[in-house]
């Protein structure tokens, strides 16, 4: 460590110290990739995060040095460096931080050489282009185009780049002409350090819809248990009564207990049985009288 210190110019030394302080003063430290984010958007993001999280941009070498000097498990963050990294400090928990950063993402046009974050689909339908070289450009990237009513029309919906594939120059050009913005641009959280552990994006992405479903599912189970075990609660007593009544009716109808309350159900059941047999008989040549079918 002493070795590093001696060789660092003053401003670098200060920078490293500032990074170390940031890490020590916040429970959560994230690594984000700033690569390809326009400066204007970085400013927007900073503004959106103000009061919640602080973005610290620096050279990767200096961040690495700070992490090395601190040592311990936080240094594991180094393994998640990618592109042009920046640190993000917050007092929020890492899940919340991940969610916040996802929310700051916006859609941008694709640049040649970028990787498609999802299948890029060009929908069929009319365009505003007049006939010209554009038709050839479309065809070169596999988009079937025709001229219709003096305008270029895309004949069928096409997936031009699959998720994970590189977007080449020609495709990028066509997409930009069509105004398709496939890229998610924003601070991508590479990893977050929290209380001795490094969390990856896969661990941090929470599916709220799935969570709501689990809640609903758990509530159903509780409802079922309460009714099936006949444990009355304010919420379920109505259903429990209903169940008991249904059971009693079922038994009564099934066994043919001729009680006033269910005699109409029994009549209905007999009538349905008659109809079922009548229709089966009809299918085999027995003429039903009109009354039967009424």
């Amino acid at each position: 460590m002493a070795l590093y210190t001696h060789h660092l110019p003053r401003w670098k030394r200060d920078e490293v110290e500032e990074i170390k302080r940031g890490i020590q003063e916040h429970p959560v430290v994230g690594i984000v990739n700033m690569h390809g984010i326009p400066a204007s958007q970085v400013q927007d993001i900073r503004r959106n995060l103000r009061g919640t999280a602080r973005v610290k941009m620096s050279r990767n070498t200096l961040i690495e040095r700070a992490l090395n000097e601190l040592g311990g498990s936080v240094a594991d963050l180094k393994e998640h460096f990618e592109g042009q990294s920046a640190l993000i400090f917050t007092n929020e928990n890492p899940f919340r931080l991940f969610k916040l950063l996802e929310q700051t993402k916006t859609k941008m046009a694709a640049k040649p050489g970028e990787i498609a974050p999802e299948d890029i689909v060009v929908p069929k339908g009319p365009t505003t282009f007049k006939p010209g070289p554009i038709v050839g450009e479309f065809q070169q990237v596999g988009i079937p185009a025709v001229i219709e009513g003096g305008k270029v029309k895309i004949r069928e919906t096409k997936t031009v780049v699959k998720k994970g594939e590189v977007i080449n120059r020609k495709v990028a050009g066509v997409l930009s002409k069509l105004g398709i913005k496939p890229m998610d641009v924003g601070l991508a959280l590479q990893a977050a350090y929290y209380r001795g552990s490094v969390f990856t994006p896969e661990m941090l992405a929470i599916d709220e819809e799935a969570c709501a479903k689990k809640i609903a599912f758990a509530a159903s189970q509780a409802f079922n248990l309460s009714v099936n075990a006949a444990i009355p609660t304010r919420l379920t007593i109505g259903a429990i009564i209903g169940r008991a009544v249904s059971e009693a009716r079922n038994v009564g109808v099934e066994a043919g207990v001729y009680e006033k309350d269910i005699i109409d159900l029994i009549i209905g059941r007999a009538r349905r049985e008659m109809l079922a047999v009548a229709l089966a008989a009809q299918a085999r040549g027995f003429d039903l009288d009109e009354e039967t079918l009424k």
Binding site: S246, E247, V251, E254, A255
Partner: peptide, 16 residues
């Protein structure tokens, strides 16, 4: 008499 030949457990659950 009606319940004599009926499997009540089944009848309860059947329609239900």
């Amino acid at each position: 008499a009606a319940l004599e030949d009926v499997n009540i457990e089944e009848a309860i659950n059947r329609a239900a």
